[in-house]
């Protein structure tokens, strides 16, 4: 599925300073019954966001209009748990294009990059600075520059670099995905598979 190219993203951010945010919180299993990839954003963080009677929980950050933007900032070990790509779809569908944390679970990280969300891993110290900056001024902006592999707190100019492999970086900057790449090497795969044991 094609996604928007990712180059530079300048945006305010939504803070979620909770550790071990698992994919069951991001999108509970009972919302995985669709056969199309549509509308998952409505149920993003469903049980943290809404009461049982579907009324919004006032103290949850997505229900507080002073916090908005295309960047979600989460606590350590973000996206742990199930392999459901629906978690990444829900985040994308809600309008986020980048998730910042000091540590990501593997499968979530892969799933995000496969659909055009950039996971930015920063140090615990920098993550703390981001949370504090947003707390003191919700209008504070972050700039994520994929080419430079840097994230900047624009209010203070504090900057940190982040890691991403060259292949994925190229894909995200150009809107390519792995399926395109693999289709281009099918001959090679065919030959390899013929000689494989199973």
């Amino acid at each position: 599925m094609a996604y928007d190219k990712f180059t530079v993203l300048k945006s305010t951010a939504v803070p979620l300073p909770i550790e071990n945010v698992d994919t069951d919180q991001i999108i509970p299993a009972r919302f995985l019954k669709a056969t199309k990839r549509e509308g998952f954003g409505d149920n993003l963080f469903r049980d943290w966001r809404y009461n049982n009677d579907d009324s919004p929980k006032k103290d949850f950050v997505l229900n507080n209009s002073i916090y908005k933007g295309k960047i979600l900032v989460g606590g350590r070990n973000f996206g742990c748990g199930s392999s459901r790509e629906h978690a990444a779809w829900a985040i994308y569908d809600y309008g986020f294009r980048c998730v910042v944390s000091s540590f990501f679970a593997d499968i979530f990280k892969n799933n995000s990059m496969n659909i055009g969300i950039l996971p930015v891993q920063v140090s615990d110290t920098f993550l703390d600075k981001i949370f504090k900056a947003i707390e003191s001024d919700p209008a504070t902006e972050l700039e994520v520059d994929l080419q430079q592999q840097s994230i900047t707190l624009l209010a203070t100019g504090e900057k940190e670099s982040f890691q991403i492999n060259g292949y994925k970086k190229h894909n995200l900057m150009n809107g390519f995905d792995d399926i395109d790449y693999l289709q281009d090497m099918k001959g090679e795969i065919e030959t390899f598979a013929e000689e494989s044991r199973y």
Partner: peptide, 22 residues
Amino acid sequence: FGIGTSEVEMVLSSQCIMQPRP
């Protein structure tokens, strides 16, 4: 190991998956 739906599509269409070596 577990994979996401984009990766399911990859395996169906090419029998391969792209993974950084852990």
